[in-house]
Design a protein around this nucleic acid. Sequence first.
DNA 1: TATAAAAAATACTAAATAGTATTATATTAA
DNA 2: TTAATATAATACTATTTAGTATTTTTTATA
Lengths: 150, 150
Amino acid sequence: MLSNASKYAIRAVLFLAEKSEMHQKYSAVEIAEALEIPNHFIAKLLQQLAKNHIISSTKGPNGGFYLNAKNLQLKVCDILNVIEIKKVFEGCFLGLPKCSDVNPCPVHHVVAGFREKILVKFEHQTIQEFADEVKLKGTFISHKGLSPSI
Amino acid sequence: MLSNASKYAIRAVLFLAEKSEMHQKYSAVEIAEALEIPNHFIAKLLQQLAKNHIISSTKGPNGGFYLNAKNLQLKVCDILNVIEIKKVFEGCFLGLPKCSDVNPCPVHHVVAGFREKILVKFEHQTIQEFADEVKLKGTFISHKGLSPSI
DNA sequence: TATAAAAAATACTAAATAGTATTATATTAA
DNA sequence: TTAATATAATACTATTTAGTATTTTTTATA
Ligand code: SF4
Ligand code: SF4
């Protein structure tokens, strides 16, 4: 549903959000290692995000990526709008035409309901809030030392 | 979420299910034209389905693809098991590790709920039932003459 | 001001998915 | 038994997504 690129980007931003209180910067390499994401791949994504002012960066020694106060108030879907080219929640789940509540397909209510809910989440929840929720609930964003559960 | 291949396959089977009362056979070309799907692509998918006994076929003049009574009692997910290589509903939506109800990610309940529901649909609803529901509710499975709504 | 650290930019390879073309085989019916 | 029709099989090309490598630019600091 989401591309690897989008998933990586979200996790990287969550990582930076979690660290944002310390006002420290993290290099692409550090982030890649922490999240076990391909080094150069995440670097490219971070650059795209920085270019679009979703995250912040400074070059040179002691430089790196970080989130400022403004970044933290952006929405989760702002990340997706940069990384995910094709709109994620568009297009028919079954490739059928003319979807509507009038002539719904057998999965209409399940799919439409899901899309509605996840979209509201992504459009309304700030990166800050998202990260806080992750922290509060003890969700792991790093695979390190964990065997995959799914 | 689903590949084009899976979507095409489902629509093709729905098409055959709808026609199954007439005990007529349809060539790959006819199906492709009716559903506006690439000719050779759907032919290949139909062959795979026939090989795995999800649909039936006969060669030669007046041959073609069709569904017998047994085919109609198969489940929708039987189609996906043939076409979709990687399991559709596995893997974390956000690429996070250790998903569970104990430490849920911010979209856990939305995603887990959706997966549960759609999986139940696909595993329990027969092709016959699926097609009947489509017919009853007037869902379009062909794009012909329709401008896309989404 | 030289050096090193890090982002930024560019260019590339690999793998997966999507789609096309060609040939072989089976079946029916004239 | 030959011709036509349709599936079946094989092999190919194109596009998208994923991932890698190399070079350039910026900047802190020694
Ligand atoms: S609800 Fe059904 S018809 Fe509508 S977009 Fe989703 S799968 Fe397609
Ligand atoms: S519920 Fe959340 S943590 Fe679990 S698989 Fe889905 S996205 Fe990942």
